[in-house]
Amino acid sequence: MNNPLSAYHIFYEVAKAGSFSKATNQLYISQPAISKSIQKLEDALHTRLFLRNSKGVRLTPEGQLLFQHLDTAFSAITSAETKLETLTRTDGGTLHIGVSTTLCKYLLLPYLSAFIREHPQINIRIRCQSSNETLKMLADDAIDIGLVGMPEHKTGFIYENLVEIEDIFVATSTYMSHLPQDMTSTREILEASTLMLLDKNNMTRQYIDDYLARNQIQTKDYIEISNMDLLIEFAKIGVGVACVIKNFVQEELADGQLQQIPLDIPIHKRDVGFAYKKTHLQNDALSCFLDFCRG
């Protein structure tokens, strides 16, 4: 999907309204456009989200799961926007940040929370999209800074590392027990499993595809999901083997909800950090933010 956040917003408003026609009043787009967006989302997630009837629509169990997570996410975004807009900002400038939804939730928000408390006069604007899109916006001067995986080609960017992340494969012990027990190699386990991966536009997915190709692992049965949180949730209910970032499932690994699948050849760890252009340092808000994160 070109704009998954927009598709999720449409799904969310339809679910709240209970019908496509009522949702048009909230979304200000036509009913056919809503129907098309929902169909594309269902196709991308390989599942049915709504059951249609003469009175409107109702959520399937899968749709209810998605709605619950989106309700939490959109409520948090609304709360953050309200707090940001109510703060008095006169001469602090504006900082435009690009970041994926996953990195925003797990890495950026803790920094932003403390930064805003110390610098309420700085106006923060966040654009959530894939890391690839963030780099493109940075190249086009549409944002001041991006939180991304370390770019393969850093020409034109300054990159400052923030944290090292590790990609792993996880599943429930119950799911693993249903696989043939004579399998011992990584290739055998992954090729016999239903793999759950991020969509192909995602930088993490591209990194994992390279790993699978180098090790000649054939993904015979896989599901594409555009959100790391949903990957984790689907893994927890035993849908299959999910490729996730270890840093973000520490709690699930510690309490046994998920188990890490040992790999014959480990996936190389990756760096995540801030990318920006030297020319953007003329923005005092960016310099202030970088100094805060370095400290």
Rank of each mutant, 00 (worst) to 15 (best):
E62H: 14
G63S: 06
G63M: 04
Q64F: 08
Q64H: 12
L65G: 10
L66V: 15
F67H: 10
H69L: 08
L70G: 04
L70K: 07
T72N: 13
F74T: 10
I77S: 10
I77F: 14
T78D: 15
S79W: 09
A80T: 12
A80D: 11
E81F: 00
E81A: 07
E81L: 10
K83C: 05
L84Q: 13
E85D: 10
E85R: 12
T86M: 10
T86G: 01
L87Q: 10
R89D: 02
R89H: 13
R89F: 01
T90N: 09
G92V: 03
G93F: 01
T94S: 13
L95G: 08
H96E: 09
I97G: 04
I97N: 00
G98T: 01
T101L: 09
C104M: 11
C104L: 12
Y106V: 03
L107N: 08
P110C: 03
Y111N: 05
L112P: 08
L112D: 07
I116P: 06
R117E: 15
R117G: 12
R117P: 00
E118F: 00
H119R: 11
P120N: 07
P120K: 09
Q121S: 14
Q121E: 14
I122S: 05
N123P: 01
I124V: 13
R125F: 01
R125Y: 00
R125H: 07
I126T: 12
R127T: 11
C128T: 08
C128W: 07
C128P: 00
Q129K: 13
S131T: 05
S131F: 04
E133I: 00
E133P: 00
T134W: 00
T134K: 01
T134Y: 00
T134V: 05
L135N: 01
M137Y: 11
A139E: 13
D140G: 03
